[in-house]
């Protein structure tokens, strides 16, 4: 198997949510002495990106996304064992997520949390109907780089503006990036309240989150 064929196989294994195959490909890569980071970045990660796209288009479903992510995690664990020490246990970032107080909608935010975990974030999911101060407290105690809030109602989206203020008052606004989302939220609203990013859907939320922590 050529290196390119192996990278393709890695991608295909994740898209097929086939954990056994993903592990087999990872072991083959190690046996062939390939650069583990390259296999992760050019094989498994594009596979996961495709999974996200398929989910966003309604052709792949949440349980399959979870299984695909488990396949990727298992394969990456094997490759990571062969990484140089300084590259091991690399984490995309720490994020605090929740739905604003007064809002019980949980599904969209839950999907974002799931996909962010898949992409290597350590996610502190505070759930729904979360008092604003809890976002601040959790961001402080976890050392989060990202604070994401979701609002599905026009009555609760104002809480996102208040959250920006509370983060400033707590003196941590400069240390964290903020993201907003939810059915009634728009880029215009994000700009207006001074949030760092807005995402239209879960896949875009992950892409924006990665941009924010890497940027």
């Amino acid at each position: 198997m050529t290196e390119q064929e192996l990278l393709d196989a890695a991608k295909a294994a994740v898209v097929a949510a086939d954990e056994e195959k993903a592990i087999e490909v990872a072991r083959q890569a190690v046996a062939l002495g390939l650069d583990p980071l390259r296999v992760i970045n050019e094989g498994f990660t594009p596979g996961m990106r495709q999974v996200g796209d398929l989910f966003e288009r309604g052709t792949m479903f949440l349980p399959e996304v979870i299984i695909a992510s488990e396949a990727m995690v298992a394969a990456v664990a094997i490759l990571e064992e062969n990484l140089p020490a300084e590259q091991k246990e690399k984490q995309a970032g720490i994020a605090v997520l929740g739905t604003i107080e007064g809002d019980v909608h949980d599904i969209g935010k839950g999907i974002v949390a799931t996909l962010m975990r898949v992409y290597g974030f350590k996610v502190h999911d505070l759930g729904r109907d979360v008092p604003l101060q809890r976002f601040v407290d959790e961001a402080k105690s976890s050392g989060a780089q990202l604070v994401g809030s979701s609002a599905l109602m026009t009555t609760t989206m104002v809480g996102q503006k208040q959250l920006e203020k509370l983060l400033k008052e707590a003196g941590i606004r400069e240390q964290v990036k903020t993201m907003v989302g939810g059915a009634v939220v728009t880029q215009y609203w994000a700009d207006k309240i001074g949030a760092d990013a807005y995402a239209e859907n879960a896949q875009e939320a992950v892409a924006k989150a990665l941009e924010l922590v890497e940027g």
Binding site: F55, R57, G58, T59, M60, F61, L62, P63, E64, I107
Partner: peptide
């Protein structure tokens, strides 16, 4: 919404999988 969100992914009605239907 425009497509049926696959939170379950396997439920069917009359032999048709519901997730992802437009």
């Amino acid at each position: 919404a425009e497509f049926v969100l696959g939170m379950h992914g396997e439920v069917e009605y009359q032999g048709t999988r519901l997730a992802g239907l437009y």
